[in-house]
Amino acid sequence: MSVKETRNMLFTFVERCEEQDGRGVETLQREIICDPVMKFFPDINSEVIQYELLKNGLFEPTEWKSIKKILRELEVKNIWDIVKQEYKYLRELWDGPKVSIYIFPIKKESKQRSKDFPRKNGIAYKKVLFLFVSPDLTKEEVKALVAHEYNHVCRLKFIDFPPAAISLNESIIVEGLGEFAVKQLYGKKWLAPWASMYDLEEVSKIWKRHFVHALQIKGIKNHQLFLFGQTNTPFPKWIGYHIGYQIVHTYNKNRGPFVMKELLLKSSDEIIAGSDFAI
């Protein structure tokens, strides 16, 4: 397990698209990009894998004409080497598990959502990590992405539950730990904007009114509204991510300081109880 040579997969994808004059690009993406990772997901098919990766940032199949240029730009930035070095460093620092890491271009922003469209994203599972990146990322931004997502892998190893059995309180703490790892390693400058998006008084009301009674809701798919928020609901944008970070931050302030290796092994209940969001 290591950082995979996804450049070969991507060049093959583009070459096949050229051979077929852009026909069947969705199928080609599934065969070349998604089928090789099915070994990590024995209970689901490649269509589901493709859907999940696209939802989380994988480039759209119709973007195939721009992939070669993006790859050259990513190579100039040494993205694969940066990720390899950071993964090795973090695995030793946190005594983390081995994981396979796949790096792909992130989908292009659309004009309708360009203001909030991410330039980087990732999705973590116990044995595999997917990173979606833009060529204009700085080295520090890439390292922060790796730290946040690999931290998830380490936490998932500790809690050892399938996605359907993970409770909301754990989902919140998973995200909080991931971003707090970025702060510990690189400082506030590289935190995501949602970490400081709201003030404590405002968030405390939302926490007590809408989160506390729902903390045992199980299944990651049932946590999306709480984590991401939604317009015209009691849940503002990125609210669960913000709360998760603030819980971990205030727990460390109140009861710590702790190194991340210690925080990863503490229960969600303990972290919440010692934070400014104690129930």
Rank of each mutant, 00 (worst) to 15 (best):
F132H: 03
I173G: 01
V174R: 05
H148V: 08
F132G: 00
F161K: 15
F180V: 04
S171D: 12
A181Y: 02
S171E: 13
A165N: 14
L177T: 03
I172F: 07
D160G: 12
R155T: 07
K157E: 15
H148I: 07
P163H: 12
G178Q: 06
F130R: 03
E170Q: 15
K157D: 14
E170P: 05
A181F: 05
H152W: 11
R155M: 09
V174Y: 04
Y150F: 15
A147Q: 07
A144R: 00
I166C: 08
L137E: 06
I173W: 00
K143E: 12
K157V: 14
F130P: 00
A147K: 03
K139W: 08
K139L: 10
L131Q: 03
V142P: 00
Y150T: 05
S171I: 06
G178H: 04
A165D: 15
A144I: 02
G176Y: 05
A144K: 01
L156A: 08
Y150L: 11
D160M: 12
V146H: 01
A165T: 11
T138I: 09
G178F: 03
H148C: 08
N169P: 07
L156D: 01
E175L: 07
L156I: 13
A165R: 14
V174S: 09
V153Q: 04
P135Y: 08
F180K: 03
H152P: 11
Y150V: 07
L131P: 00
G178V: 03
V142H: 00
K157Q: 15
L145C: 10
V153K: 01
E175A: 09
N169T: 11
E175C: 10
L168Y: 06
A181D: 04
I173H: 03
F130N: 04
I173V: 15
L168F: 10
R155V: 08
N169I: 14
E175H: 09
E170H: 14
H152N: 15
G176T: 07
A144T: 03
N169Q: 15
K157H: 13
A181N: 11
K139P: 06
E179I: 07
K157M: 13
E140R: 08
C154Q: 06
S171L: 09
F161N: 11
H152K: 12
H152Y: 14
I173N: 01
I159G: 06
K143D: 02
V153G: 01
I172Q: 01
L145Y: 03
E141G: 05
V133N: 01
K157N: 14
P135C: 11
E149T: 10
V182I: 13
P135Q: 11
I173R: 02
V146F: 06
V174Q: 10
Y150S: 07
E149D: 14
G178M: 04
E149I: 06
D160Q: 12
A165P: 04
E140C: 04
E179D: 13
R155F: 12
Y150M: 09
